[in-house]
Design a protein around this nucleic acid. Structure first.
Lengths: 242, 242
DNA sequence: TGTCAGCGTTACAATTCGTTACAGAATGCG
DNA sequence: CGCATTCTGTAACGAATTGTAACGCTGACA
């Protein structure tokens, strides 16, 4: 497991929810467990971070699992692992036909669930999907350009500037949300897939390092402005190009 | 079912073989059924047409199913649906870990098998470029060319450069996924069909060796960029030619 | 105006990665 | 079959990036 993959569990059975959450957290995943599908709608919208995998019980109240899977498939490529009742073959068939990536019949052995999660995530990772934002070739802001394919920054004098991994990701976040305050907690989640501790200064450091790359001065910033008590704001407009 | 997909069944039980063949032919598939894996070696070589899906019994004589699956995964992207014994959870987990695309426990309902076949093929079809990649004659990137038939690299001065097996496979992975970060774990999986140990440096070594072939400098790379903590990125666009 | 929380920066330690050398395995050739 | 060459994995050293700690500055509030 490369990073803290974020797994969303949708199951109306609180016992299953708690057991799964405990088990998966112990194996290093970030987990959110909800009793029904209504959370799914907001889960796919900014500023929420989309899950890496959704575990969806087919027998939600009102038989909703299947329709939520259909709903998901129309909007997202997030892999879905569906939980079914033992022996419910027609359910499994219907789930597979609606686009679930895998299924597992309750009751199941936790180790098998883990292997299936890994298998689905591995498959998804072998063929990274080009979401809309991934097909953006370049961002322009002021006289700067960020080439997304090669992860290179071009300064106003056409000099190539190498960015580190974290610097690139942070700049990318800003360019995708220009002229919008992004809260420090959200930046921490997006950069490091973890919630910040109260005294966490990691974001400040990375902002400082990115400012240095962009020849911006933190005391009198032109590009990256601090909103005290909230977060940071990228001041320029950014134009994506394909 | 869009086309006459060709399915290869490998099962030592003649009754299962005959039943599956009859059932799948009736649903429009082209089917070949064999009792053991020795047919697999010639199945992947010209002039034989590679199957679209392989149904592989895990309990072949001598417990061969698993090793055949491993063998396949090193050589081919052909999806594998593995048949296991009911209740054999450790078998299923092992199958998934060796790269099987799905499994089904005997005895099974034929309709479920059909749904799984469709699901696996649908998934595979989501990435048609990947399947067609075997017919690509050449990749061009910058002023370089990679000839896939002879596995030769041609540099910008038209000099032929020989690549080792691992170097070729690594470069091939990059050319099939240009301008996309490929995680270190995924590279290890794809190159060696195993999960990396925490201190595994094999990928780094092979990347370093490939950089050397491409006259790229790991400290100031032009072609293969490191994304620290994640993986590697091939920075140039790549054009396949047939 | 004074205080203090929040933030910018810098230095240093820890971690990750690039490269090289060497040994063993694999392959090719006479 | 023996030998030479190539390939690959392991270990080790050094460079670059990132995380942590600390100091000083700034802004908000009483």
């Amino acid at each position: 497991m490369a990073r803290n993959d974020f797994i969303l569990i949708v199951d109306d059975d609180p016992e299953i929810r708690d057991l799964l959450q405990l088990f998966l957290v112990r194996h290093g995943y970030r987990v959110k467990a909800v009793p029904d599908g209504s959370f799914l709608e907001s889960a796919l919208e900014p500023p929420n971070l989309p899950p890496d995998l959704i575990i969806l019980d087919l027998m939600l109240p009102g038989g909703d699992g299947l329709s939520w899977c259909q709903w998901l498939r129309k909007r997202s490529r997030i892999p879905v692992l569906m939980l079914t009742a033992r022996g419910a073959e027609t359910d499994r068939i219907a789930g597979l036909e609606t686009g679930a990536d895998d299924y597992l019949a309750k009751p199941f052995h936790p180790e098998e669930l883990l292997a299936r999660i890994r298998s689905v995530l591995r498959r998804t990772r072998s063929f990274p999907d080009r979401l809309d934002s991934e097909s953006i070739r370049e961002f322009r802001f002021g006289d700067w350009r960020l080439l997304t394919g090669s992860r290179e920054l071009i300064d106003p004098q056409n000099v190539r500037i190498a960015l580190s991994g974290a610097e690139y990701r942070l700049l990318r976040i800003f360019l995708e949300r220009p002229q919008t305050v992004i809260q420090r907690e959200v930046l921490t989640e997006m950069l490091w897939s973890r919630s910040p501790q109260p005294t966490d200064r990691s974001v400040d450091i990375q902002v400082s390092r990115l400012r240095h790359r962009l020849h911006d001065d933190g005391r009198e910033p032109s590009l990256i402005r601090t909103v005290r008590g909230e977060g940071y704001l990228f001041a320029l407009a950014a134009q994506p190009a394909r």
